[in-house]
């Protein structure tokens, strides 16, 4: 909440407190990191599903 509000120039209009547009390189880096994490999380979910079939009671 209020913690999110300490923008660069404090109290002026939103546009003035913003940095230049996202660069293509920065967006590409973030997308790549997102895809990597998504694969990890997806693999964990699949492993949790499959592991039950391997357990013996």
């Amino acid at each position: 909440m209020s913690q999110t509000l300490h923008r660069a120039d404090g109290e002026n209009s939103a546009a003035e407190s913003r940095a230049p547009n996202f660069s293509h390189e920065e967006l590409a880096r973030r997308r790549k990191a997102s895809q990597r994490l998504a694969w990890v999380l997806g693999t964990v979910a699949l492993a949790l599903y499959l592991i039950g079939f391997l357990l013996k009671r």
């Binding site: 300490h6 923008r7 660069a8 939103a14 546009a15 407190s17 913003r18 230049p20």
Partner: peptide, 18 residues
């Protein structure tokens, strides 16, 4: 900070949090 309603593509200009 965005208009109401927000534009289709939000944060075309990157916000910075201090």
């Amino acid at each position: 900070d965005l208009p109401s309603p927000p534009p289709l593509h939000s944060w075309e200009i990157q916000p910075v949090i201090k």
